[in-house]
Computed example of a mutant assay.
Amino acid sequence: MSSTVLSFQADEETVQTLDQLAGATGRDRQYHLQQALSRYLESEMRQMLAISDGIADADAGKLTDIESVKARWVKRADNSPD
């Protein structure tokens, strides 16, 4: 797989934390940055797709009235062990 160089600035505290993590795990900065970026992008894409699905459902008229939503939350709270 080909790769592209990305460059960005980070504050000193972030760099120190990254270096501590790299030292503790025996992995380099690049490994941890790739892991972090991959996880972030996966999370953001999952959220974006969920929003798109919700908009499509709304456009198709697949909506839930607010009273049903409230009733579900009340039921959940009533069944909570807290």
Rank of each mutant, 00 (worst) to 15 (best):
Leu6Asn: 01
Glu67Lys: 15
Glu13Pro: 01
Asp28Ala: 05
Met1Pro: 04
Ser43Glu: 15
Asp82Ser: 09
Gln35Gly: 02
Gln35Asp: 11
Thr17His: 11
Ile66Asn: 15
Trp73Ile: 07
Ser7Pro: 03
Ala22Val: 00
Trp73Arg: 12
Ala50Met: 03
Asp82Gly: 09
Ser3Gly: 09
Arg76Glu: 05
Ala58Ile: 03
Ser38Gly: 01
Gln16Trp: 04
Thr14Gln: 14
Met48Leu: 13
Val5Arg: 07
Lys75Pro: 00
Leu6Trp: 08
Leu49Arg: 12
Lys70Ser: 09
Leu18Ala: 14
Ser7His: 08
Ser68Arg: 10
Ala50Tyr: 02
Ala58His: 11
Thr14His: 13
Leu6Gly: 00
Lys62Pro: 03
Lys70Tyr: 09
Gly23Met: 09
Asp59Asn: 13
Gly23Phe: 10
Ala24Gln: 02
Gly61Lys: 14
Gly26Ser: 01
Asp57Ala: 14
Arg29Ile: 00
Ile51His: 03
Gly54Leu: 15
Glu13Val: 09
Arg29Thr: 06
Arg72Val: 04
Thr14Ala: 15
Lys70Glu: 07
Gly54Phe: 14
Leu21Lys: 03
Ser68Cys: 02
Val69Asp: 05
Lys70Leu: 06
Ser68Thr: 11
Trp73Met: 12
Phe8Tyr: 08
Leu49Ala: 13
Arg72Thr: 04
Pro81Asp: 09
Arg76His: 04
Thr64Glu: 15
Arg46His: 13
Lys70Asn: 09
Ser80Pro: 01
Lys62Met: 12
Ile66Met: 14
Leu33Met: 04
Glu67Ile: 04
Asp65Gly: 07
Asn79Arg: 13
Ala22Met: 07
Arg72Asp: 04
Glu42Pro: 02
Ser7Asn: 12
Arg76Lys: 07
Asp28Phe: 01
Arg27Phe: 03
Ala10His: 03
Ala60Val: 01
Val5Lys: 06
Ile66Trp: 01
Lys75Arg: 11
Met48Ala: 14
Ala77Asn: 04
Ile51Gln: 06
Gly54Asp: 15
Leu33Ser: 10
Val69Trp: 04
Glu44Lys: 13
Ala22Tyr: 05
Met45Trp: 09
Ala24Lys: 00
Trp73Tyr: 13
Leu18Phe: 09
Val5Ser: 12
Asp53Val: 13
Ala10Gln: 08
Arg39Phe: 12
Ile51Asn: 05
Asp19Asn: 10
Gln16Pro: 00
Glu44Gly: 06
Ile55Val: 15
Thr25Met: 01
Tyr31Gly: 06
Asp19His: 04
Ser43Asp: 15
Arg29Asp: 06
Lys62Ile: 02
Gly61Trp: 10
His32Tyr: 03
Glu67Thr: 13
Gly23Ile: 04
Met1Lys: 09
Lys75Trp: 02
Gln30Arg: 07
